[in-house]
Design a binder for these strands. Structure first.
Lengths: 304, 304
DNA sequence: TTGCTTCCATATCTTTTTCGTATAGGATGG
DNA sequence: CCATCCTATACGAAAAAGATATGGAAGCAA
């Protein structure tokens, strides 16, 4: 079976014009090189060189094979380099699925990661937590970014720092203070994020309202943060969302106010298929994501 | 060092989806295949598969490498096939240098050879015997076709059948008989082939004239048969050339007559660089050339 | 859950291949 | 004609690849 080693040997001999010099260049002794060449010629069934007294000269088939061999070796090197680049995360594609309320993290992370690894391209998918998990299971995405809680049986869950919820009101609404209490929401129609499948933030917010002694008036539930916020901008009602959600989708016509008497935190996480090999680009991206999330959490504390 | 064998193994595993089946297909045991794969992954520094319970699944770098590897293996096969084709003479290029007075042989040989090996292309060079030898020495041509005698020290000489000389006269010249004697040339201005370097047919014809008791009146000597014959066609004089020479360059305005009282033969030969590997196409071509020359000689005898 | 099956990984031994040293043979040039 | 340079062959040593035996994890069925 023809071997890469034989190709390298052959190419070197062809370029050096003699076996002895080629052997030196290859850091092997001369006899084995003679043998390898002989073996290659036998495998091909074709003499590759005319053995002249002072120099080996390529035959017609030899010339043709030299060109091919050189090309093949170069392509092999390329292939190896590319594989390593993909592994190192300096090239390749990263597929990420993200719930909309976490796009702020994602956008920041992509921006920072792109500075480190400009050759990595992204495929983004959007959906609610359930569908993101589904995509991950189907291997359509490498990383999912979702809101907790989730059923974590099949995934590695990398928790991101929790963040506070904020109240979002139509800009024209009058409020006495520059901040809100949970009790304020008792009188307003509420628009809330709600997963299509399973329990999540929605249930948590309802729970919090009840803890503050009122049953919320939920006008609309919707799984998509941008739709929700645009409805708020239309003046339909107020909503309670994680802070980062409005950091990205800060539409005109809404105002964002702190809720001072609630310690609810929205938790997000990056999730991974446990059984799957993760390219280094993905691992690096996760680091970046965590850094971004941590900084966002820090800023939040400062504001407070 | 990455090995073709490893690539084949890897591709097979990738296609079979599991090591055990791949090992069966490759006719080796399973453990060595596991080891080879492991080794390849170590050399690349990248895991190529996710080991899942029931099937091996390619990682992102693995997918990329699979495509490259498959392509490389195909190209290697192509390269080997091409080299063998060139060796077998079913492809490649054949460079031939030929003196003009032998082009008849060459044309016939090329025509027949082309039927056998339509993928072989030709590079033709023309010159006198000396320059053809020179081209062969410089490896600009694979085969030379020349008139004897030559200095045969450095070449393998493959003699072609000898052929008779014929007299060529301007068409308008009146001759009593349908054939000629050497003596007839005593009265005519002669145009003769003459090598630029060294001795050859010219000297032989002069010698033959003297043997017949006259000193030829050489009006013009010239190394190129077509020029010579066109001068004859212009009525400038007569010439004596090998029969095959006029067989190809039968210009209007000349007539060809047998010389009945001379047994001079013109000898041609194919010559080869002794120290050089000869592709099979060249060897096959030589066979065809000899067949063609032999048949030409046969026809000549019949005519006679 | 238990037991069975399937498949990958590891360990060890055997065989094959490859390499290095020593040496012979052929061509070239002074 | 000898010295030199290069290639080819012979043979022992080292390295690599393969086969067999075995262990362990995961799926599947009872």
């Amino acid at each position: 079976m023809i071997d890469v080693k034989q190709l390298k040997y052959f190419v070197t001999i062809a370029e050096e014009g003699q076996i002895t010099k080629a052997a030196q260049k290859l850091h092997i002794a001369q006899p084995p090189l003679s043998q390898q060449l002989k073996q290659l010629e036998e495998e091909l069934g074709v003499p590759l060189f005319d053995r002249k007294a002072k120099k080996m000269e390529l035959t017609a088939p030899g010339k043709a094979f030299y060109e091919k061999a050189k090309r093949l070796l170069a392509q092999l090197d390329d292939a190896v380099a590319e594989v390593k680049e993909i592994e190192e995360g300096t090239a390749g594609t990263l597929s990420i699925g993200c719930v909309k309320s976490c796009f702020y993290y994602l956008a920041q992370a992509i921006r920072h990661f792109h500075e480190q690894a400009p050759n990595v391209t992204f495929h983004l998918r959007e959906g609610d937590t359930f569908s993101i998990c589904q995509l991950l299971y189907e291997r359509r995405i490498d990383i999912g970014i979702v809101r907790l809680p989730i059923d974590s049986a099949d995934y590695d869950v990398i928790r991101l720092p929790g963040e506070r919820y904020v109240g979002v009101l139509p800009a024209q609404w009058k409020t006495g203070q520059p901040s809100l209490c949970m009790r304020d929401f008792a009188d307003w129609p509420l628009l809330l994020l709600h997963r299509v499948h399973g329990a999540g933030q929605y249930e948590r917010v309802i729970e919090e309202c009840r803890r503050h002694g009122f049953e919320p008036n939920v006008l609309c539930e919707c799984p998509d943060a941008t739709i929700l916020l645009s409805l708020v901008a239309q003046g339909l009602g107020a909503t309670i969302v994680p802070q980062s959600t409005v950091a990205l989708f800060r539409l005109p016509g809404i105002k964002v106010l702190e809720i001072i008497d609630s310690s609810m935190t929205a938790e997000a996480a990056a999730i991974l298929d446990r059984q799957r090999y993760l390219p280094k680009s993905a691992r690096t991206f996760l680091d970046v994501l965590q850094t971004v999330a941590a900084r966002a959490a820090g800023e939040q504390h400062e504001e407070r």
